[in-house]
Write a protein that binds this DNA or RNA. Structure first.
Lengths: 156, 156
DNA sequence: CTTGACCTTACCATCATGGGAAGGACTATG
DNA sequence: CATAGTCCTTCCCATGATGGTAAGGTCAAG
């Protein structure tokens, strides 16, 4: 199997297979006399493992550890579970952060009429800094830089 | 105000202020005779706007549009709302993807005893590819590359 | 032998951010 | 004035995972 076939079979692009090899995530593949990389089923299986791990959001560094455990017939499943839990926790943290962003934006968007008038609580909030969700009546005063910022350079 | 003070006042690092200037997100700051950048409240306000937008996940390119609307006293709030909605949609998409990852991982982790034995449905799943959540009894057969994959590197 | 599809390496770009080096500017203290 | 320390300047490099492209070699089919 050459790299293109291995790519198709594993779902990992040829580009990434070479990258994983270059960075030491996978061992160097065998080569034909003319320099083509060759892959056997074992390698493809490893690539699929990597692909799946990436799909679950694991960074390559963590996949390195997962692969080591995968290969280790004497591993402790606790170690694997620990890695998984770390990943879950990391995902949860990111999800929460994005959820918070989304909710803030949703509140702001809900308060914006979205018509052809310039008044906009979204811009008002962005301009005023955080924590102004309840001051929508303020919309119309605190929006906009109030001037084109006449670049008065206080030279010296 | 020099760049360090503006950074403190706005929450944007000096490094990023220079970056925003270099990439055209903000206009070039004024300079003292000796070359130091100087900032007035207006600029700091703009930096806070940027900071807050970043905190809500907007990419710099979108912030460019938001800033243009912020400055435009004849803007239509609909345009702002549209940008916000795009951002909300993007966040929701990412959240869903990460939520799916997290749930898959959680199922796998729940099925893993997490002790000192090597059997591990997490590794089994990663090795077998997607869609094997119900085949935990398989754990113990499909895990591991079955060999150290006799790395026959045909002499590069 | 030519054509086309594939392989090889090597370099560049992303996106937003930080780190660091080399050198100049300002401030406070002797 | 000298010196130390903190800040500023520009320039280059690194991140993480991925794609793109270019220049050149290889293989299979006609």
């Amino acid at each position: 199997m050459n790299i293109g076939e291995a790519a198709k079979a594993s779902g990992v692009s040829a580009k990434m297979i070479r990258y994983y090899e270059a960075t030491g995530l996978i061992p160097a593949a065998g080569r034909t006399a003319s320099g083509y990389r060759v892959y056997a089923d074992t390698e493809v299986q490893m690539l699929r493992f990597i692909r799946r791990s990436r799909d679950l959001g694991f960074p390559v560094e963590k996949i390195k550890e997962l692969l080591a455990l995968w290969r280790d017939r004497a591993r402790h499943s606790a170690d694997v579970k620990h890695l998984a839990q770390e990943q879950i926790d990391g995902l949860e943290k990111k999800i929460s952060a994005m959820q918070a962003m989304k909710e803030t934006l949703q509140h702001l968007a809900d308060a914006c009429c979205g018509d052809n008038r310039p008044e906009c609580p979204i811009l008002a909030d962005l301009g005023n800094g955080p924590g102004h969700l309840h001051r929508q009546d303020d919309a119309g005063s605190g929006q906009g830089p109030l001037a084109q910022s006449g670049r008065r350079r206080a030279a010296g």
